[in-house]
């Protein structure tokens, strides 16, 4: 990597001013060329900002308590989300939910850019878009899990999903032990953004009841 932080001729590091100017220029061109209107852009930005990891957690907690809902969610995520009032925009990429179990642990990445299930989780965390995560997780996923403090038995299969095309992947974390009597609302608090990307497990119930 060059000293000025320009790796592969791309990447302007933390140069926020550069990106801000570039975004403004692209926006002006899109409007001028009639590709879309300013209103379209603002509506889309509002739509993304209206979603957060709490929305994903709510859906996945419902899947934990209702096995039949879980089956529908895994088979056809978009219809299942609609049941809970989440109407994904037609322009949004397709969504698939992958379930983590005792035998399989899924982790999501986009090595090409920053594809992420924004339609349900909102904007991705900064590290998800960073070169470090994107390049390391496909080569050494277990090393990444360790960095996030996630312990996983060697007998559990790790499956990395690189969302490179028309689908976005939401991970359904494994329901932790000791959560049998918990309400759906409390269960949702255990489902973190990191666990829905697959770099972490859901939180243990102690972490919620203690607060």
């Amino acid at each position: 990597m060059a000293e000025n932080g320009h790796e592969n001729g791309h990447g302007h590091g933390d140069n926020a001013e550069y990106y801000s100017l570039k975004a403004e220029a692209i926006q002006a061109l899109l409007i001028e060329k009639g590709v879309c209107t300013l209103d379209d852009i603002l509506t889309m930005a509002d739509r993304i900002d209206s979603r957060s990891p709490e929305d994903g957690a709510k859906v996945l907690a419902h899947a934990w308590v209702d096995p039949e809902y879980k089956q529908r969610l895994l088979a056809d995520a978009e219809s299942a989300l609609l049941e809970l009032g989440y109407d994904l925009p037609e322009t949004a990429p397709k969504l698939t939910v992958l379930e983590n179990t005792d035998d399989v642990h899924n982790m999501a990445v986009c090595t090409l850019c920053s594809c992420y299930p924004r339609a349900i989780l909102g904007r991705p965390p900064a590290w998800y878009k960073g070169l470090a995560y994107r390049s390391k997780v496909v080569v050494d996923p277990r090393g990444v899990l360790q960095e996030f403090g996630t312990e996983l038995d060697a007998a559990v299969q790790v499956r990395v999903i690189d969302s490179s095309a028309d689908f976005r992947y939401l991970i359904l974390p494994k329901r932790p032990a000791g959560t049998e009597g918990m309400s759906e609302e409390d269960l949702a608090k255990l489902i973190t953004q990191e666990s829905m990307i697959g770099v972490a497990q859901a939180l243990s119930p102690d972490s919620v009841t203690a607060s």
């Binding site: 996923p141 090393g143 790790v158 499956r159």
Partner: peptide
């Protein structure tokens, strides 16, 4: 679906680990 050992000759994890990608 690829076996991680097919992608990386020196993959550190178990041979059962895989990577999925849409092509």
């Amino acid at each position: 679906e690829f076996s991680q050992t097919e992608l990386w000759a020196n993959y550190k994890g178990p041979t059962t680990d895989t990577l999925l990608i849409d092509i």
